[in-house]
Design a protein around this nucleic acid. Structure first.
Lengths: 134, 134, 134, 134
DNA sequence: TTTT
DNA sequence: TTTT
């Protein structure tokens, strides 16, 4: 069991890259507000990096922009890499398995009078044997 | 919503420290196996740092040791700090809100014939204004 | 571990009642859409009864109306009762521990130009020794 | 989002049935202890019906017996049916998407000296167009 | 730096 | 480095 559920706003537009073998990888950061328990003034947030693969990556690239609100279901993953100075460094990311778009419509899009619709995209749980491209 | 649920084994004994004001803080790492979906041979794990506060910290210190299996419910938190070389560095931890001890008894303890009992400790969600002591 | 996380729309206005001892209890039903995986046309939903206690109950009564979208975190509870015909019947409800209001503003309220704000209410986990009043 | 995570013990052996088209369906009930917050004596439990489909159903039938401890990840589903007396009745079940077997070995099986192994079975999220057979 |  |  390695389950993460987050609701937050995109802190920046998603970047979509492709692995050697052509798999799409989207990455972005979401700001998850905390402090609901504290005084409502001092709003703080955790900025959490999200990674999505394949079809889900493409859906993110096509539909999400900075500021949009999403619910992300995924798992925590710790990646390690080596710096130019031969130091081991660790990165923690959430590998998205499922993302729900919580805003009714894409930002900037024409506000249709239609009832707000949930959008949702599913991705199976991938453990690709390829590196996440930087 | 910032929710994490993990099941894993302690990769090391918990360390319990105290803040200036005397709050207990336990920290340890759990190994969460992945790859259940892949070939069963290549076992890999994510090593995820856990932080518990106050009463829950003390329960961890008194009851958990390396190797024990736990279910951790908490939230992801990203902390930043500055290195001696004035570089900003980020650490991601899970702040535990609730831990269930999934083994029947403490390691090494006398195996009582008693029915295995779930142990569980609850901690309220703390956002202390104090630093996590290193 | 008994954890439920749902996102859905209120199928009716909340009803707030009070126990003998004066504890507030709110109950309502949310419609949780499914079928995202299936053909997008055939929308179906699960109608899931939610119960909130005390301060959280009052927040629900004061802020939620039919149609509003919420994220509910809670636990599943099965209650049994006896019918007039002496038959045992079972009801499954979600006891809310935390509710996030996912719409920017209360329904019918004046649409302020202000940035949409997340509202959130917390309730501790109650296992009251009192019946849920019908 | 319709997510349920439960840890409990099987209250009875799973029953495996087959639909018209040959799909396996396992059903069983798990006892999820509560009251951790209350006095530790008065142990109470919620008895929650679980349904698993296809490959996951078969894994349950082959590996689970009364008393075993499991972690169930799934979604809540409300089914309605009509009694012989033409009354509409509702059943709430958890449709399992993933089950982790939390005991090292099958009950009654020879206690091997081998290191306890997590077993895990995955099922995709099915919304079959067939009835759950009684 | 790691668990079973 | 950040969102509302």
């Amino acid at each position: 069991m390695n389950k993460v559920i987050l609701v937050g706003h995109l802190a920046r537009d998603p970047e979509v890259r492709y692995t050697q073998s052509g798999k799409a990888v989207a990455s972005f950061t979401i700001a998850v507000n905390r402090n609901f328990g504290g005084t409502p003034e001092q709003r703080e947030a955790d900025f959490i990096p999200i990674v999505a693969w394949e079809r889900l990556a493409e859906t993110c690239g096509n539909n999400l922009t900075k500021g949009r609100r999403v619910l992300v279901e995924g798992r925590m993953q710790v990646r390690s890499y080596e710096t130019a100075e031969k130091q081991r460094r660790y990165v923690t990311e959430v590998i998205a398995q499922n993302i729900e778009f919580l805003d009714s419509r894409k930002q900037g899009g024409p506000e249709t009078g239609a009832a707000p619709a949930d959008m949702s995209s599913f991705g199976k749980d991938v453990f690709p044997d390829e590196e996440i491209p930087f």
